Simulated assay, not measured.
Amino acid sequence: MLDSYDYVVVGAGMAGDAAARGIREVDPDGTLLVIGREPTAPVTRPALTKKLWTDPDFTFDQVWLATAEDARAELLLGESVIAVDTGARTVTTDADVTVGYGRLLLATSGHPRRLPGVEESGRIIYFRTVRDYERLRDLAGGGRHVVVVGGGYIGTELAAALVQNDTRVTLVHRQDVLTGATFPDGLARHVERRYADAGVTLLRGSTVASAESGADGVTVRLADGAVVEADAVVVGAGIEVETDLARAAGLEVGDGIAVDDRLRTSDPHVWAAGDVALYPDRILGRRRVEHVDNATSMGRQAGRNLAGADEPYDHTPFFYSDLFEYGYEAVGRLDASLETVEDWHEDGFGAGVVYYLDGGRVAGVLLWNVWDATDRAREVLAGQTDVRTEALRGLIR
């Protein structure tokens, strides 16, 4: 290792990988170090809950992003940065390694949200990393029983993936109807029926009080006193973003690390990108987004700006999920408590668009089995002033 680098990227996820590539688009020769807390190199993280389980043509070798080779970056893995000294322009890891930087990117993302009474062990997995995927693969299949905790993106994807891979699945979630906090009631009930038809046992409105791992299985106790015996537990309850490092360094922090439209923080030599960045979206206003399109597009732009491009981040990201034969893309805010206008193109929730309304404007667009329409959804979010049902239906086909 060098004592100092032109560019240091803290975070070896998809935003960090994209940033390294963005740096190389502008500066092919500057020294570049990427530091990651995970012991493995950057991977395409969505594949860990989707393609690796459901696409027989997608192999494990395809998850690796080849950051070191493609971006000519040095990787320091298995170490966490515990301090940033913005005056000296150095970062220090938990292995007592200190390196200097010319320009720094914080792409720290976050840690899986922990549940009280549920400690991670060999059979209890807080799902996040490629090593978590490997552990879950070892514990699944062969008719084994896995309890999935969480009804959000990760939990629903894992439950669908596991039940399609010869695994009995019990899905524990807080909602009265699975996906009911996100989708209109009719669509949510349709999705829930699909899980039940696939053989997933749904424990609605439930929370886990404790889970104890033994040599041969896991005992899960719910808050209502019910007990579930299983071979493994996998928790997908979201992440807690890592802002402590930035706060301790004196950077401006809110619900994330505050950045301007160039993704620069309150320090002129430090940028932030990905899950952790609180940025000014040109259509939707200041926000923080925890999805892959934002990580890769924002990471690339941050990298370019570290290398001197000085370009605005003007991309409004979309997000997506795959659940059995269903797939969707969305832009903006999906909140079932908002008024919605549904425009179904095929009967039985086969394909259609849902518009979410807030304060007389379109706040979110769900594209259910509708593809290549995210740009049109952004146009609707940016400029649609007539939100009557008859005006919205037919806008996106």
Score class of each variant (00 low, 15 high):
G394M: 08
T90Q: 09
V270N: 14
A181R: 12
G205Y: 08
R135Q: 11
A20V: 05
V34F: 09
R194C: 06
V208M: 02
E119M: 10
S4L: 03
M14N: 09
A273T: 12
D132Y: 01
K50E: 02
V208L: 01
D281V: 14
L105M: 13
E229P: 00
V218E: 04
Q301K: 15
L52C: 13
T92M: 11
Q301V: 14
R103E: 13
I154C: 04
P39E: 05
L158V: 10
A83N: 15
T54K: 09
R304V: 03
L76R: 14
V341S: 10
A83F: 12
D96Q: 13
A161Q: 04
A159W: 02
V147T: 01
I23L: 04
L48K: 08
G30R: 04
S210W: 01
A196C: 09
V163F: 03
V234Y: 02
A19M: 11
G332E: 07
P116L: 08
G383W: 06
D70L: 13
I154R: 00
R135H: 03
D358W: 01
I283A: 09
L105W: 12
T98R: 10
V241H: 02
V200P: 05
R193M: 06
G383C: 02
A196W: 06
A20E: 03
G308S: 07
N369P: 04
D85A: 10
D281I: 11
E290I: 13
A377V: 11
V253K: 11
R193I: 05
A246D: 14
E342G: 13
R24N: 03
L357R: 11
R135V: 03
A19C: 11
Y126W: 05
I154H: 01
Y279C: 15
T179I: 05
D55A: 08
T54H: 02
R72S: 14
R288T: 15
E229M: 00
R221C: 00
G36R: 10
S80K: 04
D3N: 10
L357I: 12
W344R: 08
L366D: 05
E346P: 00
T92C: 12
T316Q: 06
V233L: 06
K51V: 01
A19E: 05
D197V: 14
E69Q: 15
R131P: 05
I396L: 12
T340V: 15
